[in-house]
Amino acid sequence: MAITAQMVKTLREKTGVGMMDCKKALAETGGDEEKAIKYLREKGLAKAAKKAGRSTSEGLIGNYIHSNGKIGVMVEIKCETDFVAKADQFQQLAKDVAMQIAATNPVCVSPEELPQELLEKEKAIYLQQAMEEGKPENIAQKIVEGRVNKYYKEVCLLEQPFIKDDKKSIKDILNETIAVLGENMQIGRFCRIDMNDAAPEESKDDE
């Protein structure tokens, strides 16, 4: 199948990835846009894994104030250089992550940061539910595992579906930006203030 300029342009608009990478992805997948998007995500994940150990001493504070003026967010987005911190794609990432936090109110950045006592409490609830449904213990444990993974998508920022495109997670958005800009990036601390709450909620540093 011939890869047209319009196909490349459309894929670039959907993913934010460079034109040559989009063209290659379409060529590798026979012009199938959905497969090309998956190809680019996997490529981005591989690039992110290679860069994961590199120091992130630069970055910026993303912020978002909801239209009603009653919910505000600040989030630390880290990268390797000041040059990348000034890039449009990086600044858009910071805005999107801040907006995500405002909308979804995550407990923490990643599953590794989730308080153990909170996780154990959820597991106990899921196990009791499965046993009450009459499931054998081995099946009940698998059900607990599945419900825990679903719980991560509710309370852990990186695992949450992106509010602008629920086919992607925040981790996908982060990895796509890493693939485009070529630097390691991390989401660090965040603070979400809701005037309806008694106090702001703050995560631990993601280091």
Rank of each mutant, 00 (worst) to 15 (best):
L93K: 03
E117Y: 05
V75F: 03
L118R: 11
E113L: 06
Q100P: 04
A102F: 08
K121Q: 14
A94S: 15
E113D: 08
Q100S: 01
D88C: 00
P111R: 07
L114T: 03
V109W: 02
V75K: 04
D82E: 14
E120M: 11
V97F: 04
V107I: 14
A103M: 10
M99I: 09
A87W: 04
E120N: 15
C108V: 14
D88W: 03
V97H: 03
E120P: 02
F90M: 06
E117F: 05
Q100L: 04
Q91L: 09
I101P: 02
K86P: 10
A102V: 12
T104Y: 00
P115G: 11
Q100K: 03
Q91T: 09
P106W: 00
E122R: 10
P106K: 00
S110Y: 07
A103N: 09
E80R: 08
M99H: 11
C108W: 03
A102C: 14
V75D: 03
G72M: 00
L118G: 08
E117P: 00
K121C: 01
K78W: 00
M99S: 11
P111L: 10
A94F: 12
E113Y: 00
C108M: 07
Q91S: 10
E80H: 07
V107F: 12
T104Q: 10
C108E: 08
T81C: 08
E122H: 10
